[in-house]
Design a protein around this nucleic acid. Structure first.
Lengths: 233, 233
DNA sequence: AGAATTATTATGTGCATACATAAAATCAGC
DNA sequence: GCTGATTTTATGTATGCACATAATAATTCT
């Protein structure tokens, strides 16, 4: 039963995945330890380690010291979403990107915003509304609040030509963020901009990014009916 | 400039991230090569390699052989979505999970389904409609098609008690899949089940899973207004 | 000059070894 | 029996070395 020698970690990964797939190792099962697998495959333990670590990262294996490695019984599917800059998302599918700044002003935001950003309700923020176009048709409507106290240069940023997201990525550091996806219906004010009817279903993404303990920006983007966010599993 | 010695890869990662963050290394910049960093940090090159690989995986660094490693100029944000089984999603936030099988029958699916699953339009599939409940209130409405030719045991599966997803995870292997998220409005037929009004905005997830070249199952899940899918960035 | 060839270089990987660490399993003491 | 200390063990990681590979840079040839 000395199968072909598996020298590289990707082959080891493939073989382990195969065994899981054909149910040699069933959900919940404990699989042999790294040392045994290494000697079976004819490679170093570190190679097996790399392969198993990679699989574990995808959620298909559970690894715990001393307890060993077992096949996840409820493999929490983990999908990695790439969230590119709007321009790349559009140009990536061969369409022409367009950008249109609708408004830009410094205002006191609604309490919902200042609360989410953990600011006092009377802090003024830079408010930006913009439309992203694909082949000259509405692709997404952006509604963004930026704290100029955290991002000093914003007030002079050339946001007529470059989207706020792109400018911020280049100019404002951040440490972490949160994203939420949901659905809503088109308001009468937004519908014409998105080229849809009032009441039409819109896909919404909301992002809040932080630099340490300070909120940098909060953005809500509305996508017209038909938009899908897709990813591989 | 012999800072504190950084021995482990997580410290190295933290330090590299810090330098990116404080713009020592700006978007687009080429950073020193692994060997140099290793000697600066006082650790082995493989340790630096591990750290940089990890950062690159998150999208913040671009690495190419010979060309070197540079800070991504448009850091494509990569969010990892965990898509647990519905029961765990609900119990995970401390609510009581409930499951209710609405209907189960073998039918010829609409062409949209059979096309997506790459089947001939006259193949009969198992059709399941079910409601997931959180604290006895509607949480999600599931509409699923399963190819019994690919999953032999399904026709006898006890889908009154266990959700199809859980049963399939335990009993039907798959190799890969696709997910799409979108928005729609509640149909008159679905609204009462979801406890919302007709025309209310619904969040939709659609999943299609494959076992090699054969489609296993396709599911469309509707979430009532207010539902958000969240993740960290 | 332009094309084809060769050298150089940074990352990618494999391996053997050593030690660290978490957690299960066992044992000691009451 | 139960509790707490101790041992065992599987994974986690660091290291130095070697070689593979991709892609750029330099060189040679026509």
């Amino acid at each position: 039963m000395t199968g072909p020698v598996l020298r590289d970690w990707q082959s080891v990964r493939a073989e382990v995945l195969r065994r899981i797939h054909v149910r040699d190792w069933k959900p919940g099962d404990l699989i042999p330890n790294e040392a045994d697998l290494a000697s079976e495959f004819g490679c170093a333990r570190s190679t097996v380690n790399r392969a198993l670590r990679d699989i574990a990262q995808s959620g298909l294996l559970d690894r715990r010291r001393k307890a060993g490695t077992r096949v996840a019984s409820n493999p929490v599917a983990r999908a990695t979403l790439s969230i590119p800059v709007m321009r790349e998302e559009i140009e990536g599918v061969g369409r022409k990107y367009g950008y249109q700044l609708l408004s830009r002003s410094t205002e006191i935001p609604p309490v919902a915003e200042s609360a989410a950003m953990q600011l006092t309700p009377d802090d003024a923020l830079l408010h930006i509304r913009a439309l992203h176009l694909a082949d000259d048709r509405p692709f997404a409507l952006e509604n963004r609040w930026i704290d100029p106290g955290v991002v000093p240069g914003v007030t002079d940023a050339p946001l007529e030509n470059i989207s706020a997201n792109e400018w911020l990525l280049q100019n404002a550091p951040y440490t972490h963020g949160e994203i939420a996806f949901s659905a809503t219906v088109a308001q009468a004010s937004d519908a014409p901009l998105l080229g849809c009817d009032t009441g039409a279903p819109l896909f919404v993404t909301e992002r809040l990014t932080w630099d340490g303990t300070r909120a940098v920006t909060r953005v809500r983007i509305l996508f017209p009916p038909g938009y899908q966010m897709r990813t591989a599993l």
